[in-house]
Design a protein around this nucleic acid. Sequence first.
DNA 1: CGGTGTGTTGACAGCCATCAAGAGCCGTGG
DNA 2: CCACGGCTCTTGATGGCTGTCAACACACCG
Lengths: 239, 239
Amino acid sequence: MSELLIRKLERRDLLSREEKNVLRNAFVRTQTLRADEDIVHEGDRPAESCLLLDGFAARYNLLADGRRQISAIHIAGDFVDLHSFLLKTMDHGVMTLSPVRVTFVPHATLAQISRDYPHLTRLLWLSTLIDSAIHRRWLTVMGRSTATAQMAHLICELHCRMKEIGLCDDGAFHVPMTQEELGDTLGLSTVHVNRVLAELRNGGVVKWQQNEVTILDLERLGEIGEFDPGYLHLRQEPR
Amino acid sequence: MSELLIRKLERRDLLSREEKNVLRNAFVRTQTLRADEDIVHEGDRPAESCLLLDGFAARYNLLADGRRQISAIHIAGDFVDLHSFLLKTMDHGVMTLSPVRVTFVPHATLAQISRDYPHLTRLLWLSTLIDSAIHRRWLTVMGRSTATAQMAHLICELHCRMKEIGLCDDGAFHVPMTQEELGDTLGLSTVHVNRVLAELRNGGVVKWQQNEVTILDLERLGEIGEFDPGYLHLRQEPR
DNA sequence: CGGTGTGTTGACAGCCATCAAGAGCCGTGG
DNA sequence: CCACGGCTCTTGATGGCTGTCAACACACCG
């Protein structure tokens, strides 16, 4: 159940047998949710944190006029709201983008881990730091790139992350997001997302149909999005 | 020396006498830097993390064509690159925006703290989570607001954070940033930053001259920027 | 006193938002 | 079985926010 998380942490540093067992015993319940459901609402004060086992989820904020901005996209193995353990009050909501399976770890268990397993704690901390690094990269891309480059960058990032967890089949992977949701992610209108995708499609760079993304020319896509995976910190070393 | 950091952490949760002493003894050297210097470069693998004692600093990324995006602004008391402790390799640079005083804590000391002081560790973790929350808010503002709203939001945020550390005098505070740097922060051109500031000035909302910001109409500024300080998590509670 | 950095203003262009309409797909219900 | 509505994708027309280019004012400084 928490094997995906273990695998993910171990991409950054090895875990001891004991640490793995701690993680295996930390999660208390598994739940299935449909697409477009809220996992946590803005303003909530959850008593447990949520690990995504399967499917896609997003963190988002709503503005006064009802518009939405997605600030993170999460895939299987992501600790969607580890943050709430210490932030206490949610400053954003978390919603499902597809049907998902999630499992929960009580904050009390996380507190115990932070007392008894410093190295494991550092790796959990690290996983929130990587989220943070992704935020920074998105800021850079949003602030300084055209819509096409933004889209290319997002596809490259998802490609890397899906490959990391073995959900990528030779440049093809599943992304259960509508163009509206993509627009909310990149800060673009739905219409423009459509045009940008058409451009990438017509350029023979990516195919995107039925939630199935196929990268036809990875090198070119990386150039368009100025993609450099360094910020994902995919490197195993003592932490 | 680390009193500012202590004060800042204590705005979120009380520290024990021992924890405070640990922090007081953690920092090894203090250094003065001029404006526009790099503290850490992208790609570096620092062995210590940097606490800002005085002045302004920014985290930034450079693009291929030389354009820059600032992803965070840091003020006195901020732990500018606590991240490098676990990320190891810097995925962005950190530069001074003004003359600053900084002090450093060896990563080895942080590792020790993470072994021996779980509660203090959680508070350090928390401070990186708050950075992360700020990133998310910036993403929301960048993606879904006009330039004027972005600027208003940034001013509100800086106002809150400066007030928090006692560097705000009745709505007036120091912001040693050029309009170019503001543009790099908000993803705007220098020219447009100028126009937006002129608009806010002419509207009688803020005065901004000689790096001195004065908020004339805080309520109106908050409306323009849709500002809600919740994401700064300024609340003292057990963590 | 000239050079450099910063702020200011105007003209123009372009990327992208908005509005609108239609097509394809799918589940529901008659 | 077919009609219907809802959601998503697609495409065109129009407009506006913001970038780019350019020129100038001003302060500071060597």
